[in-house]
Amino acid sequence: MAGWRPALAVVAGTLLLSGCTDGTDDGRTARGTPSASAGGKRSPSPSSPTASPSSSSGAYTLAENRAPRTRAEAVAFVRSLVVRPDYFGAGYRRGEPYESDPARWAVLGEDCVWRREPLPRTVLASLTRRFELPEEKGKDAVYVALTVTVHTSTVQARRDMAGSVEEALRCPEQRLSATERVRGLSSQAQTATEQESPTTEDDLQEAGEYVVDGEEPRPFDWSKFRLGPVTVAATVRHGAGRVEYDIAVDALKGVGFVAAEIDRRDESGDTGTKDEPTGTGGAGGGGSTGGAGTTGGTESTGGAEGGR
C-alpha cells in the first residue's frame, strides 16, 4: 500500500480533533464555537468548530448512564445526529440510498462474505449514511459511508472493537457483493492510554484495496472509533485521479464532527431521544461484524450497505 497510510493511522486522533477546528473549504478556519441547528441544538459545522472533549482523559466519550437504554431511544439518538455532506469536504452530496435500516447491520460470515442481518441483543441501533463526491473531468467518484452504532453497554462496544480487529486477520480479502471485494487489508488499533493525544477511547484504522471485477483496484480506507457504548465507523472508496491523502484526511475530519457532537451529548445530558417514534425490532443475528461492510452494496447481491 502507499507509504502515507501507516502515517495516517498514527495521526488519526489529531485529524479527528482537527475535524472540529478546521473548515472544509480551501480557507481553513480557527477554533470557534458550535453553531445552532434549526431545532435549537448546537451542532458542529466545518465553519463553526466545537469545544474540546469533555472527559477528564481528554477523549471524546459518552457516559453509559447518559446513553440510550432502549431500541427506540437508540434509533432516535442515531437519527438525531447531524451528518452533513460537507463534513467530508467540499462537493460531497448524499448518496443513494442515503440511510440504512437501523434494525440491521453488516455481518462478516465465516466465508468472509458480508451480509445484512438483524441486530443481536447486544446492539440497540446501527445507522449508516452514505455520501459521494461526484465524478468530474479526469476524476472518478469517491464514496463515503458513516455508521453510528449504539451498544447495550461499554463492555459490548469494547468487544465489538476487538472483533473488528480480528476480522482483518481472519479475512484479509472480503466479498461485498457478487462483483465487489476488498483485499490486502491491514489494521492498526489503539486505546486512549496508548495514544499521545487521545480523542476517542479506542480507535481502529484499516487500509486495503477495493476491487470491482474487470476494473482497476482503488484504495480503500476504514476507520472506527469508540465513545463509551457508541461506535462510529467510516469507509472510503477512493476514485482514480484523486489525491488519496487529502480524501482520507477529509473523511477522518468528518468523523470528528460526529464524535464531537456525541461528546457534547455527554456534557449536556441531551441524547436527542425525546418525542421520537418507537423502536424497529431486530433482535437475534450476531456473528462477526466489522468495517468493510460499510461500503455500500445491496442486500439483493449479498453486499453490505452498512457496517459497524
Score class of each variant (00 low, 15 high):
Gly3Val: 14
Arg5His: 12
Leu8Gln: 08
Val11Tyr: 10
Ala12Asn: 14
Leu15Asp: 07
Leu16Gly: 07
Thr21His: 12
Thr21Pro: 00
Gly27Ile: 09
Ala38Thr: 10
Gly39Met: 02
Gly39Val: 04
Gly40Cys: 05
Gly40Phe: 09
Pro49Leu: 12
Thr50Cys: 11
Ser56Leu: 11
Tyr60Val: 04
Thr61Ala: 04
Thr61Asn: 07
Ala63Gly: 12
Ala63Val: 06
Asn65Gly: 06
Arg66Val: 06
Arg66Gly: 04
Ala67Arg: 02
Thr70Asn: 12
Ala74Ile: 03
Val82Ser: 09
Asp86Ser: 12
Gly89Asn: 07
Ala90Gln: 13
Gly91Leu: 10
Arg93Trp: 02
Asp101Phe: 09
Asp101Met: 00
Trp105Cys: 08
Ala106Val: 05
Gly109Val: 10
Gly109Asn: 10
Val113Lys: 11
Trp114Glu: 14
Glu117Cys: 04
Glu117Ala: 08
Pro120Gly: 09
Arg121Gly: 15
Leu124Tyr: 14
Thr128Gln: 04
Arg129Asn: 07
Arg129Pro: 00
Glu132Gly: 07
Glu135Ala: 11
Lys137Ala: 15
Gly138Met: 00
Ala141Tyr: 05
Tyr143His: 08
Tyr143Gln: 14
Val144His: 09
Val148Ser: 15
Thr149Ile: 12
Gln156Lys: 11
Arg159Phe: 11
Asp160Ala: 15
Arg170Asn: 06
Thr179Leu: 07
Glu180Arg: 07
Ser186Asp: 08
Ala189Asn: 08
Thr191Cys: 09
Thr191Leu: 03
Ser197Met: 14
Glu201Thr: 10
Val212Phe: 00
Gly214Glu: 10
Ser223Trp: 13
Gly228Cys: 05
Thr231Asp: 08
Thr235Asp: 04
Val236Pro: 01
Gly241Trp: 00
Gly241Leu: 11
Asp250Met: 12
Gly254Tyr: 05
Gly256Ile: 10
Glu261Val: 10
Gly269Asn: 03
Thr280His: 05
Ala283Gln: 06
Gly284Trp: 05
Gly285Glu: 07
Glu299Gln: 15
Ser300Ile: 14
Glu305Gly: 09
Gly306Gln: 11
Gly307Glu: 13
